[in-house]
Nucleic acid binder design. Structure first.
Length: 151
DNA sequence: CGTTTGACTACGC
DNA sequence: CGCGTAGCCAAAC
């Protein structure tokens, strides 16, 4: 798999971030990666794809009983990335549904409803991490037809 | 020792 | 909006 220069410390950092995701909310591999600065020498655009894979590797490597809520990390399409018809896939879905996360007929969640907006700004600053990429559709793309003027 | 296979995304059709 | 593919690496077969 695509591995970061230092998988051990990278994984620890990823797990720390994932621990911040509250129950009932979901993040994505790409969003987690977006908070971690790209290592030296890694092209930023390339890191958007590589980093997501690295985070996937970190999730795959979560130790049993570590308390890391790995089920709250899914792919950018809003679906569970663990291969279907596997034990892990079913367990992730059941865990999320137990937290109140709903899946549509296509097996996708609604980021606008359950998407995570990242840790508090000071939490990120303490660790020299970047602000996360927002999830879901941009509310700004919705015309002000439904958005009444406040004055 | 050669192949297959990923807990991913962006981009082009 | 759905589908295929590149990118580019380490393990498991």
């Amino acid at each position: 798999m695509y591995s970061p220069p230092d998988p051990t410390s990278y994984n620890r950092l990823v797990w720390d971030i994932v621990r911040q995701v509250p129950a009932g909310r979901v993040s994505t591999y790409g969003q987690i990666a977006s908070m971690i600065p790209p290592p030296d020498g890694v092209d930023e655009l390339q890191y958007r794809r590589l980093g997501a894979r690295w985070v996937g590797g970190a999730m795959h490597a979560v130790p049993d009983g570590s308390g890391v809520p790995w089920q709250r990390v899914i792919n950018s399409k809003g679906e569970i990335s663990v291969r279907e018809r596997t034990e892990g896939h079913l367990e992730q879905r059941l865990r999320l549904e137990a937290e109140g996360v709903r899946f549509d007929d296509a097996g996708r969640v609604d980021f606008d409803a359950v998407g995570w907006d990242g840790p508090a700004a000071d939490w990120l600053a303490e660790r020299e991490l970047l602000p996360p990429r927002p999830l879901g559709k941009r509310p700004s793309s919705d015309p002000d037809a439904t958005q009444p003027r406040l004055f």
